Computed example of a mutant assay.
Amino acid sequence: MATSRAGRAGGAGAAARLLGYLESKKNLAGSACGLAGLGLGFAGVGGSFWPVVVAGLYGAGALIAPPERVDPPHHPDAAEQLGVVREDFGRLREYLAEVDLPPAAGGKLAELMELYAALLDPGWVADALAAEPEWVHALSRAIRLDVPECVDTYNRTRWWTRMTSGAESPERHLERQLVVLYDEAERVTAGLHGVEAGRQQTHTTYLEERGRS
């Protein structure tokens, strides 16, 4: 049965490729030249070799036809990526609503999520963030990978602590991880502030120079 399905799939692929070639510029150009050759054959040009003339003209037409244009792959820009990150952030919130964390880590996580929400909230802040692909990537990585991994490894590791002792507690590791992520988010925030402050300074300089001229 698997063989028959593979055979059908292969046949469908071959039919699609054949149809694609029939509709291609190469076939259309070759067919036009071939028809011209057929007309020459009816007119007596080429004598008994008219099939060769037709085939030759078809091949020549196919060769000189411009190649089919293949659209380059689309890579979303930073603004589109930020929209996707915003959707991922919504899913992260839903996930975190179902987990139980210790008070200290839960409080730090709440602060982190508030900071992410402020950065992603549609408006001029998000517009400024979208203009910085590296910061969009950092935020995306934290939301998609880092925060879920922190919470998941905490939940799995704390089960083993019931049978072991002496190691640093999973709660402490989780707190340390969240502190690092919060510091990273604050660096993004500070960077955005620096960009806006630079714009303001540039405009001030421009106005002062215009006033002196």
Rank of each mutant, 00 (worst) to 15 (best):
G107Q: 11
R156Y: 06
A105C: 07
L92T: 05
L119S: 10
A131K: 07
V84E: 06
Y95N: 07
N155D: 05
E134D: 15
D146F: 02
L112H: 01
D152C: 11
D100S: 13
E80S: 09
G106H: 01
L101T: 08
H137R: 08
L129R: 09
E87N: 03
G107R: 13
P148R: 04
A142K: 14
A104H: 09
S140D: 15
P102K: 03
A126S: 14
E80P: 05
P76H: 12
A117C: 02
A130G: 08
I143F: 01
E149L: 15
G83A: 07
E114T: 08
E149M: 13
Y95L: 11
D88C: 12
D127T: 13
E149I: 09
M113K: 07
L120M: 06
D88L: 11
I143A: 09
G83R: 14
D100W: 02
A105L: 01
A97K: 11
R144M: 02
L139C: 14
W135V: 02
T153D: 04
Q81Y: 11
E149N: 12
D152P: 08
P133C: 09
R156F: 03
P103Y: 02
E134N: 07
W135P: 02
W124I: 09
D100Y: 03
I143V: 15
A117D: 13
V99G: 02
E111R: 10
L112E: 05
R144P: 04
G90C: 05
